[in-house]
Design a protein around this nucleic acid. Structure first.
Length: 768
DNA sequence: GGTACGGCAGTTTTT
DNA sequence: CTGCCGTACC
């Protein structure tokens, strides 16, 4: 059992632990992946456990793939008989296994398809999407599903709430349509198995007796529904092996429930808890810097991460003038690393808080001719032409998939607009046939232009008739050609269209690769694959390229050199997290996750000014910079005057979790004339009764009492981000500003939910 | 039924 | 600034 020899004592104990629930608190870089893999190998090779009775959940498909590979090295072909994947892929696997008869048409909808179906449902209910943003409705439905709340329960919960009641109606309709079409959304992949198990106890019993060993990675990021599913399966055997790190919980916004890991011991009173506290990844400096950040969180399980690694160099912080300079600074530092050490580009990664930040880096990297890859943003499979091609494939598989049908029935243009489309759908409903059948009937009865419709119907049908004999990649290529889609692009003659054609060929070759890797897979399997994979999953470190990604995508990865960029208040921590201490703590965990990805060098960068929405504004460095104990960070900045005050201010106020809205003075011209002496431009918040945000920049100390700031003082410089109070609407935040002086108009979002555009002169606003 | 243009909302993070 | 949606016209 050679793999046991490589483990430290705690890891060894975890891997060889007997039956019963076990929680492993695994700090960053503490070798948890190897513990998980070894555990499975141990179960199979030493404990005599049948691999097919193991159910192992990872956070990404990539992690599952890597684990599968490593397992194959350890236990050979037996690695293929366990169930290993993300919650979503395993949920789908359960559903497919149990959906015997009508499994042919199980399609998984992604975000955009969901939104389209929400719109369709709203239209059917005569709810105008002006009053109700489909995106918001979708978010509500998704959050409900994260907690395994179905339409009925949702309706019951919100019966008294006008808005909630409408959302419940939409949810019900949306769900009805999903089921009618045989389509699942992401939430269904967890909720439907739960429903299945609840409604059919004998089925649950079958799964319980099959899967005697449940292993869950990243347990801190499971949501309520996933927790329920896990517990349904594990409750009888109680062989639940959960691994996680509460300090790395960064998906609360997606429903992740940190309580799941914190309450493990009360859920399983017999549970043992082991802590993996030795870090094998980072230098001491980096680890200490990261620790000094995470310690600022008040809601956490105590854990002392340490390392035997060399001390290394302290983290390096540097400010650039603006976001372009920030990118160039990153490139300078990157080149320096490449010159003096043997670091290749592939050893470095650039992290940022929001996808939008990637654009500037991309531009500068192209200019410098540095090879790079961007993870996330628009996935390959999210491109328009790819989604169109996928929609064709979905219609082949599931002719009732109305969203996909609508997407392509008139692409290329076949003179099938709203009216004709409505007729087809009605005809289908009347005769009880699918949409392709309905089109054929309409043609036969002369209600549809035959020649125009033919390219569509025939392309779909010929795919089907040859599905058994011809290869998927070949059929797909023929489908996009026969349908006229390819011709449509080729006729366009623009560079963009040419690129789309290229992408379609790339899709065909992606299908070829897939066929090679999965010889037995069919169209349905490929579509599942497309729906469930993400960019991170297909990330391979094979060529020498710099990697760019969001901090969220960085979870689970490691790089020799890490650049964390956009270290600015309002961006990171993000201003959307400003109002809630909990969200702020999550931002801090995100910072911790980012820092602990670095093995040797950690660069933290920020821009003093940055364009957002095309308008540039001044920024203050992130409080996180100032939370790092000074001995672990080198500050390359003009640390006098303004910025020094900033630092002291952050120091004094950042450890209590109270957010101070620095957007207030982080704006256009107020900064350039900041006093170089040390007059108290930053006063501590007066937290007597208002919520702490009365910090703003001014030269006049007498104005520091917010109650003296009335709108009547028309010279007052209102800025976006400021907290204000309106006599009628109550407290709110300034979102936008137009005009100057007496003409100033402000867009204010009030806490009661309404957003108003107000003329300052009349509004009688006060600073909150 | 197709197209051209104008207005407005949007960006936090994703399986 | 951009991309999407709705409207008005062909």
């Amino acid at each position: 059992m050679p793999f046991l020899k490589r483990l430290n004592p705690v890891q060894h104990e975890a891997v060889t632990y007997g039956d019963g629930p076990l929680l492993i608190l695994a700090g960053a870089g503490s070798g948890k992946t190897s513990v998980l893999t070894s555990r499975i190998a141990y179960l199979v090779e030493r404990a005599g456990v049948d691999p097919s009775s193991i159910f192992a959940v990872t956070f990404t498909n990539k992690a599952a793939g890597e684990m599968s590979e490593r397992l194959h090295d350890l236990i050979g072909h037996k690695a293929h008989s366990l169930w290993l994947g993300t919650f979503h892929s395993l949920g789908l696997r359960i559903l497919r296994t149990e959906a015997s008869a009508n499994s042919h048409g199980l399609t998984v909808y992604g975000d955009d398809d969901q939104k389209a179906l929400i719109k369709e449902s709203m239209a059917a209910l005569n709810i105008p999407d002006k009053a109700f943003n489909p995106r918001n409705v979708l978010n509500k439905i998704n959050s409900a599903k994260n907690e395994n709340i179905g339409p009925e329960e949702f309706a019951a919960d919100y019966a008294a709430d006008f808005l909630g009641e409408r959302v419940a109606k939409i949810y019900t309709e949306y769900q009805r349509r999903l089921r009618k079409m045989g389509v699942l959304d992401f939430g269904d992949l967890i909720c439907e198995p739960i429903k299945l198990f609840t409604e059919k106890p004998e089925l649950l019993e079958k799964y319980r007796s099959r899967f005697r060993y449940i292993l869950v990675d990243e347990y801190q990021d499971t949501n309520k529904a996933q927790y329920l599913l896990t517990n349904l399966l594990a409750k009888e055997s109680e062989n639940l092996f959960a691994v996680g790190d509460p300090d790395q919980s960064i998906y609360a916004w997606r429903g992740a429930c940190i309580k799941n890991i914190l309450d493990f011991q009360s859920d399983y009173p017999d549970a043992a808890i082991l802590k993996l506290e030795q870090n094998y990844r980072s230098t001491q400096s980096i680890l200490s810097a990261a620790n000094s950040i995470i310690e600022k969180n008040s809601n956490r399980m105590e854990k002392a991460l340490w390392t035997d690694n060399p001390h290394g160099s302290p983290a390096h912080y540097e400010e650039a003038l603006n976001e372009y300079e920030e990118a160039r600074l990153m490139i300078r530092l990157l080149k320096k690393l490449a010159d003096k050490s043997d670091s290749a580009y592939r050893d470095s990664a650039v992290f940022y808080r929001t996808n939008a930040q990637s654009r500037v880096f991309e531009e500068q990297l192209i200019r410098e001719g540095i090879p790079y890859v961007i993870l996330g943003g628009t996935r390959f499979y999210d491109r328009k032409e790819i989604r169109d091609a996928i929609a064709y494939l979905r219609v082949v598989l599931n002719p009732n998939d109305s969203i996909s049908f609508k997407r392509v029935v008139n692409t290329p243009p076949r003179k099938i607009g709203k009216v004709t489309l409505g007729n087809i759908i009605n005809l289908g409903a009347e005769r009880g046939v699918d949409l392709i059948e309905a089109m054929k009937i309409a043609c036969a009865e002369g209600r549809l232009n035959k020649t125009r419709a033919a390219s569509f119907v025939e392309a779909i049908e010929s795919f089907r008739s040859e599905a058994g004999t011809e290869r998927l990649s070949e059929l797909t290529l023929r489908l996009i050609e026969d349908s006229g889609y390819m011709m449509m692009l080729q006729d366009e003659g623009t560079d963009e269209a040419a690129e789309r054609v290229e992408n379609l060929f790339e899709l065909v070759s992606a299908i070829k690769d897939y066929e090679r890797a999965n010889p037995d897979a069919g169209l349905a399997d490929f579509l599942d694959h497309v729906a469930l994979i993400s960019d991170v999953d297909s990330f391979v470190e094979n060529s020498d390229r710099l990697t760019l990604m969001t901090l969220h995508s960085a979870k689970g990865l490691e790089f020799k050199n890490v650049f964390m960029t956009g270290m600015e208040e309002g961006l990171f921590p993000h201003s959307r997290s400003a109002d809630s201490p909990d969200e702020l703590e999550e931002e801090r965990r995100l910072c911790y996750v980012g820092m602990t990805r670095a093995k040797e060098r950690l660069h933290l960068l920020s821009a003093r000014s940055r364009s957002v929405y095309g308008e540039s504004s001044y920024r203050l460095r992130s409080r996180f910079i100032d939370e790092i104990a000074p001995e672990f960070i080198e500050l390359h900045t003009d640390d006098s005057g303004f910025m020094r005050k900033n630092r002291e201010y952050n120091r004094n106020n950042s450890d209590n979790g109270v957010y101070l809205d620095r957007n207030v003075y982080a704006s256009d011209n107020s900064h350039s004339d900041s006093p170089s002496d040390s007059s108290d431009i930053f006063t501590a918040p007066d937290n007597t009764h208002t919520a702490s945000d009365e910090v703003y920049y001014t030269n006049d100390e007498s104005q520091l009492d917010p109650s003296t700031h009335r709108a009547g003082a028309s010279s007052f410089n209102w800025r976006t981000g400021m907290r204000v109070t309106h006599p009628a609407f109550g407290p709110g935040v300034i979102r936008a500003k137009e005009g100057t002086g007496d003409d100033t108009k402000l867009t204010v979002s009030f806490r009661n939910g309404v957003t108003k555009k107000l003329v300052v002169k009349y509004a009688n606003l006060m600073l909150a």
